[in-house]
Simulated scan of single mutants.
Amino acid sequence: MADDTQYELHQILENAAFAPLDDRAFLRITGPDATRWLNGMVTNSIQSLAPGEGNYNFLLNAQGRIQGDGTIYRDGDEFLLETSTSQVESIQQHLDRFIIMDDVELSPAYTEKQGLLLIGAKAPAILAASELPALDPLHLSHAKSLLLLAPAAGSIPRYELWDDPASIALLRENLSNAGAVEVSSASLEQLRLIEATPLFSQDIRDRDLPQETAQAHALHFNKGCYLGQEIVERIRSRGQVHRTFTAFRLIGDLPTLPAPIEANGKPVGELTSAALVPLPEGPTLLALGYIRREALDTHQPLTYAGGTAIPRSPGTS
């Protein structure tokens, strides 16, 4: 298994790979008031999106706590919200509560389609060779019955391709013939740790504040009012939050999550994700979590039950 994931991770980092997308779901937002209403429900600027463009968003409650996340694309005069299957129902319920006098409708979309992720350093070249439309990050395109998405979820290029099951089966064959290798969810999880991309419900919880997650690309400070904005602006005016999302390299045992982090015997944070990653320099324990800023800024030695946690920059070991 270790040799398999090492090979798969190498294909992602140096070549191209593909994997089924079975953890995504879509909501379509329509109606004459959709732009104004949706802009007031999420943390990024929806009204500034051109057709085909998208951006990453948080959905907050009135206390500024994160209730969900997703990427929103403008699809003509409508909007398409892509999120994980585990939270699509709760997001729809959250949004439904705030449709009062607004002419807005929410409905599931693309439930009949299957998804395929194309990812890797050479993924753009394979996409171009397939004669599919070129996509910039955070972009949407329709090609016949095929829906193409280019989420900006990390440093490695990636594309989502959605179509009927028969077409996706043929596409898998074509990608394989073009040199792409099918990879496992374990390898994609290892890449997520390398890139330090937080996962909602694991690294981002409904008690977390937007600025604590270090996902500045989810926030727009000149877009106008939205649910939870008062808290976000209060934090901004204060200058910083007390803790921040951080990537770590671990020396020791694989922790049981969530794992408290201590400095000088005092709790200063927690690890929320961790895995053994087969990096070129050797198997390395990588983790994600939160740390209090004073412990991070003063470079205090950090420990967890079973080892030592060393802060690192995303994309490095």
Score class of each variant (00 low, 15 high):
288 L>E: 13
275 A>P: 05
170 L>E: 15
193 L>Q: 05
120 G>S: 08
272 T>L: 00
260 P>F: 06
117 L>N: 02
186 A>S: 15
284 T>V: 08
277 V>G: 05
99 I>H: 09
229 Q>N: 03
261 I>T: 09
182 E>V: 07
284 T>F: 05
58 F>W: 10
134 A>D: 14
299 H>G: 12
124 P>G: 06
217 H>F: 13
137 P>C: 01
39 N>L: 04
77 D>N: 12
293 R>N: 10
4 D>W: 10
24 R>C: 01
133 P>T: 07
297 D>R: 07
215 Q>F: 12
246 T>M: 12
203 D>R: 07
22 D>P: 08
63 Q>N: 11
47 Q>K: 13
211 Q>I: 01
185 S>H: 10
227 L>V: 06
114 Q>N: 15
149 L>Q: 11
196 A>T: 10
9 L>K: 07
51 P>L: 04
34 A>E: 01
75 D>Q: 14
304 Y>P: 09
315 G>L: 01
123 A>W: 03
72 I>T: 11
83 T>C: 14
261 I>Y: 02
281 E>R: 13
307 G>Q: 11
113 K>Y: 14
192 R>A: 13
123 A>G: 03
236 R>L: 11
89 E>N: 12
182 E>P: 05
17 A>I: 11
99 I>P: 08
183 V>L: 01
21 L>A: 12
112 E>C: 12
89 E>I: 09
198 P>E: 06
287 A>K: 04
119 I>D: 00
121 A>L: 05
132 L>W: 07
241 V>G: 15
167 S>E: 14
268 V>A: 13
3 D>V: 10
279 L>G: 11
222 N>L: 07
73 Y>I: 08
285 L>R: 06
173 E>F: 14
116 L>K: 02
228 G>H: 00
261 I>H: 08
305 A>C: 05
280 P>Q: 11
91 I>S: 03
34 A>Q: 04
266 K>F: 10
243 R>P: 14
108 P>L: 01
